[in-house]
Amino acid sequence: MGQLGQKPQSVVIEARGLSMNYGSNLIQSNLHFQISKGDVFVIMGGSGCGKSTLLKHMIGLYQPAGGDILFGGQSYFTASPEQQLAMRKRWGVTYQGGALFSDKTLAENVALPLVQYTTLTSKDIRDMVRYKLALVGLAGFEDFYPSQISGGMCKRAGLARAIALDPDILFFDEPSAGLDPLSARRLDDLILQLRDSTGATVVIVTHELASIFAIGSNGVYLDANSKTQLDTGSPGYMLNHSKHDLVKAFLSRGE
């Protein structure tokens, strides 16, 4: 982290002819896109087009039906279990509802990856946990259980857990869904600040237009009817130059 930005254009994630099934249902096929280091990559599209499914393929929870996803040129799915684990440690994933372990306090939730994968003493882990929770604005909530805090706070605590190991790639599933506009804005700012100061690459599933334009630097539009991507590029570029009216309509709320 200390020495960033030597190769700003290097490709971190690349989808090559990716297709995804859900059982025998084809969800999306023939997806091609590239995500560069430091990008905020937005996966967008209407409801039910497979945005979350694409995210779950990217984080290795689902096996693609065809094609491949490359991380720094290496395929996750053909890697050995040790390599897969090493790759996973470089990712941080934030789930829609936070997905905090409900029988653990926030501190224990954030500490879990640190306890598992580092050799830090318990005092150092406590300091790290305090710092990570302070980053997401939850300083002083260490000993609270997820059931004792609000939904928005759960999301931020989930983010604190995702960044526990200083990941290179941060994945978000609908980060601003269910948040009020101000909290959503704060979360967007937080994502950008984290990206700027840690040099992480961010992949976001969202359909909040405000977020898409505020933070997206690159993206892909998935279409539910044709079951493939209609366009890829930065949201601003797609709004003005996309060949597909559907993409333009989506990005301008049909106005």
Partner: peptide
């Protein structure tokens, strides 16, 4: 480094919660 300053300020933007669970 500037990144350290930014992260430090970010972590200090919200004052710590004093209420106990």
């Amino acid at each position: 480094p500037e990144d350290v300053r930014d992260l430090f300020n970010l972590a200090n933007t919200v004052p710590p919660n004093k209420a106990l669970p």
